[in-house]
Protein backbone atom coordinates (compact mmCIF):
# COMPACT_ATOMS: atom_id res chain seq x y z
CA UNK A 1 0.00 0.00 0.00
CA UNK A 2 1.27 3.37 -0.99
CA UNK A 3 -0.28 5.20 1.91
CA UNK A 4 0.30 2.74 4.70
CA UNK A 5 3.19 4.83 6.00
CA UNK A 6 0.91 7.74 6.70
CA UNK A 7 -1.59 5.60 8.54
CA UNK A 8 1.03 4.35 10.98
CA UNK A 9 2.26 7.89 11.44
CA UNK A 10 -1.22 9.01 12.42
CA UNK A 11 -1.57 6.11 14.86
CA UNK A 12 1.62 6.72 16.78
CA UNK A 13 0.53 9.75 18.89
CA UNK A 14 -2.67 7.90 19.77
CA UNK A 15 -0.69 5.03 21.26
CA UNK A 16 1.55 7.45 23.14
CA UNK A 17 -1.48 9.22 24.59
CA UNK A 18 -3.04 5.92 25.63
CA UNK A 19 0.17 4.91 27.39
CA UNK A 20 0.36 8.26 29.17
CA UNK A 21 -3.26 8.07 30.30
CA UNK A 22 -2.67 4.53 31.56
CA UNK A 23 0.40 5.66 33.47
CA UNK A 24 -1.36 8.61 35.09
CA UNK A 25 -4.42 6.61 36.12
CA UNK A 26 -2.15 3.84 37.37
CA UNK A 27 -0.17 6.28 39.51
CA UNK A 28 -3.19 7.93 41.08
CA UNK A 29 -4.57 4.51 41.94
CA UNK A 30 -1.71 3.51 44.23
CA UNK A 31 -0.68 4.92 47.62
CA UNK A 32 -1.93 3.99 51.07
CA UNK A 33 -4.44 6.56 52.39
CA UNK A 34 -6.23 7.24 49.14
CA UNK A 35 -9.97 7.80 49.31
CA UNK A 36 -11.86 7.69 46.04
CA UNK A 37 -15.11 9.62 45.90
CA UNK A 38 -17.14 9.08 42.74
CA UNK A 39 -20.68 10.11 41.93
CA UNK A 40 -22.98 13.07 41.73
CA UNK A 41 -21.95 16.13 39.77
CA UNK A 42 -24.09 18.14 42.21
CA UNK A 43 -22.16 17.01 45.31
CA UNK A 44 -18.75 17.45 43.62
CA UNK A 45 -18.10 21.12 44.58
CA UNK A 46 -18.94 20.30 48.20
CA UNK A 47 -16.86 17.11 48.35
CA UNK A 48 -13.95 18.92 46.71
CA UNK A 49 -13.94 21.61 49.43
CA UNK A 50 -14.24 19.00 52.19
CA UNK A 51 -11.45 16.96 50.61
CA UNK A 52 -9.12 19.98 50.45
CA UNK A 53 -9.78 20.95 54.07
CA UNK A 54 -9.40 17.36 55.27
CA UNK A 55 -6.14 16.90 53.36
CA UNK A 56 -4.80 20.12 54.96
CA UNK A 57 -5.49 18.66 58.37
CA UNK A 58 -4.34 15.10 57.57
CA UNK A 59 -1.25 15.36 55.40
CA UNK A 60 -1.09 11.61 54.80
CA UNK A 61 -4.60 11.49 53.35
CA UNK A 62 -5.19 11.78 49.64
CA UNK A 63 -8.73 12.21 48.36
CA UNK A 64 -9.75 12.05 44.72
CA UNK A 65 -13.19 13.42 43.82
CA UNK A 66 -14.87 12.93 40.47
CA UNK A 67 -18.43 13.73 39.46
CA UNK A 68 -19.72 11.80 36.47
CA UNK A 69 -23.18 11.46 38.07
CA UNK A 70 -25.00 9.66 40.87
CA UNK A 71 -25.83 6.65 38.73
CA UNK A 72 -22.20 6.33 37.75
CA UNK A 73 -21.17 6.60 41.42
CA UNK A 74 -23.62 3.91 42.49
CA UNK A 75 -22.42 1.70 39.62
CA UNK A 76 -18.85 2.25 40.85
CA UNK A 77 -19.90 1.32 44.40
CA UNK A 78 -21.55 -1.86 43.12
CA UNK A 79 -18.49 -2.70 41.01
CA UNK A 80 -16.24 -2.03 44.02
CA UNK A 81 -14.19 0.67 42.25
CA UNK A 82 -14.86 3.50 44.72
CA UNK A 83 -14.62 3.99 48.51
CA UNK A 84 -17.36 6.58 48.80
CA UNK A 85 -20.22 7.12 46.38
CA UNK A 86 -21.67 10.63 46.50
CA UNK A 87 -25.29 10.74 45.37
CA UNK A 88 -28.05 13.29 44.88
CA UNK A 89 -30.76 10.62 44.89
CA UNK A 90 -31.38 7.59 47.09
CA UNK A 91 -30.18 4.19 45.94
CA UNK A 92 -32.86 2.07 44.25
CA UNK A 93 -33.97 -1.35 45.57
CA UNK A 94 -32.75 -2.98 42.33
CA UNK A 95 -29.34 -1.35 42.83
CA UNK A 96 -29.17 -2.64 46.43
CA UNK A 97 -29.89 -6.15 45.10
CA UNK A 98 -27.14 -5.81 42.48
CA UNK A 99 -24.74 -4.56 45.16
CA UNK A 100 -25.52 -7.42 47.51
CA UNK A 101 -25.04 -9.89 44.65
CA UNK A 102 -21.52 -8.41 44.33
CA UNK A 103 -20.90 -8.64 48.10
CA UNK A 104 -21.31 -4.89 48.66
CA UNK A 105 -23.52 -3.58 51.51
CA UNK A 106 -24.50 0.04 50.69
CA UNK A 107 -24.46 2.19 53.85
CA UNK A 108 -26.24 5.55 53.59
CA UNK A 109 -25.12 8.78 55.29
CA UNK A 110 -26.89 12.09 54.62
CA UNK A 111 -24.31 14.90 54.47
CA UNK A 112 -26.27 17.98 53.30
CA UNK A 113 -29.47 19.20 51.65
CA UNK A 114 -29.83 20.68 48.17
CA UNK A 115 -32.55 22.86 46.75
CA UNK A 116 -32.86 22.02 43.06
CA UNK A 117 -33.29 25.46 41.52
CA UNK A 118 -35.23 26.05 38.34
CA UNK A 119 -33.44 28.78 36.40
CA UNK A 120 -34.00 30.83 33.22
CA UNK A 121 -32.21 33.62 31.36
CA UNK A 122 -32.32 36.99 33.23
CA UNK A 123 -34.28 38.61 30.37
CA UNK A 124 -37.10 36.09 30.69
CA UNK A 125 -40.15 37.77 32.31
CA UNK A 126 -41.50 34.47 33.72
CA UNK A 127 -40.94 34.38 37.48
CA UNK A 128 -43.00 31.47 38.78
CA UNK A 129 -44.04 28.04 37.53
CA UNK A 130 -46.15 25.20 38.90
CA UNK A 131 -45.10 21.55 38.94
CA UNK A 132 -47.70 20.86 36.24
CA UNK A 133 -46.22 23.57 34.01
CA UNK A 134 -42.67 22.34 34.58
CA UNK A 135 -43.80 18.81 33.79
CA UNK A 136 -45.50 19.98 30.59
CA UNK A 137 -42.38 21.93 29.57
CA UNK A 138 -40.08 18.95 30.13
CA UNK A 139 -42.39 16.44 28.45
CA UNK A 140 -42.72 18.73 25.41
CA UNK A 141 -46.43 19.56 25.79
CA UNK A 142 -45.69 23.25 26.33
CA UNK A 143 -43.18 24.54 23.79
CA UNK A 144 -43.63 28.31 23.87
CA UNK A 145 -42.95 30.71 26.74
CA UNK A 146 -46.23 32.58 26.04
CA UNK A 147 -48.16 29.51 27.28
CA UNK A 148 -46.79 30.14 30.78
CA UNK A 149 -47.05 33.94 30.78
CA UNK A 150 -43.82 34.81 29.00
CA UNK A 151 -42.79 36.21 25.63
CA UNK A 152 -43.61 34.56 22.34
CA UNK A 153 -40.44 32.42 22.13
CA UNK A 154 -39.67 28.74 21.83
CA UNK A 155 -38.70 27.00 25.06
CA UNK A 156 -35.35 25.19 25.04
CA UNK A 157 -35.60 22.73 27.93
CA UNK A 158 -32.22 21.59 29.25
CA UNK A 159 -31.70 18.50 31.42
CA UNK A 160 -28.73 16.49 32.64
CA UNK A 161 -27.92 13.17 30.93
CA UNK A 162 -28.90 9.81 32.39
CA UNK A 163 -25.65 9.52 34.40
CA UNK A 164 -26.99 12.21 36.69
CA UNK A 165 -28.94 11.81 39.92
CA UNK A 166 -30.45 15.20 39.19
CA UNK A 167 -31.88 13.81 35.93
CA UNK A 168 -33.63 11.01 37.82
CA UNK A 169 -34.67 13.11 40.84
CA UNK A 170 -36.20 15.81 38.66
CA UNK A 171 -37.95 13.23 36.49
CA UNK A 172 -39.53 11.44 39.45
CA UNK A 173 -40.43 14.49 41.53
CA UNK A 174 -41.28 17.11 38.93
CA UNK A 175 -41.87 15.53 35.51
CA UNK A 176 -43.88 12.63 36.98
CA UNK A 177 -45.19 14.85 39.83
CA UNK A 178 -44.58 12.29 42.57
CA UNK A 179 -46.93 12.72 45.55
CA UNK A 180 -49.36 15.01 43.73
CA UNK A 181 -52.89 14.00 42.68
CA UNK A 182 -51.75 14.44 39.06
CA UNK A 183 -48.87 11.93 39.52
CA UNK A 184 -48.23 9.93 36.33
CA UNK A 185 -45.26 7.56 36.35
CA UNK A 186 -45.53 6.99 32.59
CA UNK A 187 -44.30 10.53 31.87
CA UNK A 188 -40.77 10.84 30.45
CA UNK A 189 -38.54 13.66 29.27
CA UNK A 190 -39.63 14.82 25.81
CA UNK A 191 -37.54 14.14 22.72
CA UNK A 192 -36.51 17.77 22.29
CA UNK A 193 -34.99 18.14 25.76
CA UNK A 194 -31.22 18.72 25.59
CA UNK A 195 -29.33 16.20 27.73
CA UNK A 196 -26.04 17.83 28.71
CA UNK A 197 -23.04 16.04 30.21
CA UNK A 198 -22.40 18.55 33.02
CA UNK A 199 -24.28 21.05 35.18
CA UNK A 200 -21.75 23.80 34.35
CA UNK A 201 -22.51 23.48 30.63
CA UNK A 202 -26.23 23.80 31.35
CA UNK A 203 -25.72 26.93 33.47
CA UNK A 204 -23.55 28.46 30.72
CA UNK A 205 -26.23 27.75 28.14
CA UNK A 206 -28.92 29.43 30.28
CA UNK A 207 -26.70 32.48 30.77
CA UNK A 208 -26.18 32.77 26.98
CA UNK A 209 -29.53 31.76 25.50
CA UNK A 210 -32.78 33.63 26.33
CA UNK A 211 -35.10 30.70 25.55
CA UNK A 212 -33.61 28.16 27.93
CA UNK A 213 -34.71 26.61 31.22
CA UNK A 214 -32.58 24.32 33.41
CA UNK A 215 -32.44 22.90 36.94
CA UNK A 216 -28.98 23.13 38.56
CA UNK A 217 -28.32 22.53 42.25
CA UNK A 218 -28.38 25.66 44.43
CA UNK A 219 -24.56 25.59 44.61
CA UNK A 220 -24.27 26.21 40.86
CA UNK A 221 -26.52 29.27 40.72
CA UNK A 222 -24.69 32.44 39.58
CA UNK A 223 -25.72 36.06 39.07
CA UNK A 224 -25.99 35.47 35.30
CA UNK A 225 -29.11 33.33 35.62
CA UNK A 226 -32.53 34.00 37.10
CA UNK A 227 -34.22 31.84 39.76
CA UNK A 228 -37.83 30.78 39.27
CA UNK A 229 -40.24 30.54 42.22
CA UNK A 230 -41.86 27.12 42.23
CA UNK A 231 -45.27 26.03 43.50
CA UNK A 232 -46.61 22.51 43.88
CA UNK A 233 -50.10 23.35 42.60
CA UNK A 234 -51.70 26.47 41.15
CA UNK A 235 -53.21 27.27 44.59
CA UNK A 236 -50.07 27.02 46.72
CA UNK A 237 -47.69 29.94 47.20
CA UNK A 238 -44.65 30.19 44.97
CA UNK A 239 -41.35 29.72 46.82
CA UNK A 240 -37.88 30.77 45.67
CA UNK A 241 -35.11 28.30 46.40
CA UNK A 242 -32.83 29.44 49.21
CA UNK A 243 -31.12 28.03 52.26
CA UNK A 244 -33.98 29.23 54.51
CA UNK A 245 -36.81 27.84 52.40
CA UNK A 246 -35.03 24.51 52.01
CA UNK A 247 -34.41 24.28 55.77
CA UNK A 248 -37.97 25.10 56.81
CA UNK A 249 -39.33 22.66 54.22
CA UNK A 250 -41.38 25.18 52.21
CA UNK A 251 -39.31 24.83 49.03
CA UNK A 252 -40.84 21.87 47.20
CA UNK A 253 -37.81 20.51 45.26
CA UNK A 254 -35.32 20.03 48.08
CA UNK A 255 -33.46 16.74 48.34
CA UNK A 256 -30.88 15.05 50.53
CA UNK A 257 -27.25 14.83 49.39
CA UNK A 258 -25.85 11.45 50.38
CA UNK A 259 -22.68 9.45 50.81
CA UNK A 260 -22.76 5.67 50.34
CA UNK A 261 -20.01 3.39 51.59
CA UNK A 262 -19.57 -0.38 51.53
CA UNK A 263 -20.72 -1.23 55.07
CA UNK A 264 -20.26 1.18 57.98
CA UNK A 265 -17.17 3.35 57.27
CA UNK A 266 -13.97 2.65 59.19
CA UNK A 267 -10.47 4.14 59.47
CA UNK A 268 -9.62 7.19 57.42
CA UNK A 269 -12.94 7.07 55.53
CA UNK A 270 -14.78 7.32 58.86
CA UNK A 271 -12.53 10.23 59.92
CA UNK A 272 -13.35 12.02 56.68
CA UNK A 273 -17.11 11.52 57.00
CA UNK A 274 -17.01 12.53 60.68
CA UNK A 275 -15.29 15.74 59.57
CA UNK A 276 -17.98 16.37 56.92
CA UNK A 277 -20.71 16.01 59.54
CA UNK A 278 -18.88 18.14 62.15
CA UNK A 279 -19.81 21.79 62.71
CA UNK A 280 -16.74 22.94 60.69
CA UNK A 281 -17.68 20.63 57.83
CA UNK A 282 -21.29 21.80 57.86
CA UNK A 283 -20.10 25.43 57.86
CA UNK A 284 -18.44 24.67 54.50
CA UNK A 285 -21.82 23.48 53.16
CA UNK A 286 -23.17 27.01 53.54
CA UNK A 287 -20.09 28.49 51.85
CA UNK A 288 -20.49 26.23 48.80
CA UNK A 289 -24.15 27.21 48.54
CA UNK A 290 -25.98 24.15 49.81
CA UNK A 291 -28.04 23.72 52.96
CA UNK A 292 -26.42 22.27 56.10
CA UNK A 293 -28.13 19.48 58.02
CA UNK A 294 -30.49 20.79 60.72
Amino acid sequence: MRFSRNKTKAGRPVIAILLLVGLVTGLTGCGSDVINIVGSNTVTPLSAVWAEEFMDMHLEANIAVSGPGSGAGIAALINGTTDICQASRTIRPTEIEQAQANGVEPYEIQVAIDALSVVVHPDNPVSELTFAQLSAIYTGQITNWNEVGGDDAEIVAIARDTNSGTHVFFKEHVVQMQGLPTEDTSLEYGGDVLMLPSTEEGVDQVADNPGTIFYPGLGYVTDEIKLIAVKRTADSTAVLPSIETALDGTYPIARPLLFYTNGEPTGVIKDFIDYCLSSEGQAKVLEVGYVPLP
Binding site: P68, A75, N79, Q98, N163
Partner: peptide, 10 residues
Protein backbone atom coordinates in the same frame (compact mmCIF):
# COMPACT_ATOMS: atom_id res chain seq x y z
CA UNK B 1 -22.43 5.38 24.85
CA UNK B 2 -20.29 7.97 26.63
CA UNK B 3 -23.18 9.61 28.45
CA UNK B 4 -24.58 6.29 29.65
CA UNK B 5 -21.69 3.95 30.34
CA UNK B 6 -20.64 5.53 33.65
CA UNK B 7 -24.11 4.91 34.98
CA UNK B 8 -24.38 1.33 33.75
CA UNK B 9 -23.83 -1.56 36.13
CA UNK B 10 -21.55 -4.22 34.65
Amino acid sequence: IASGIGNAVR
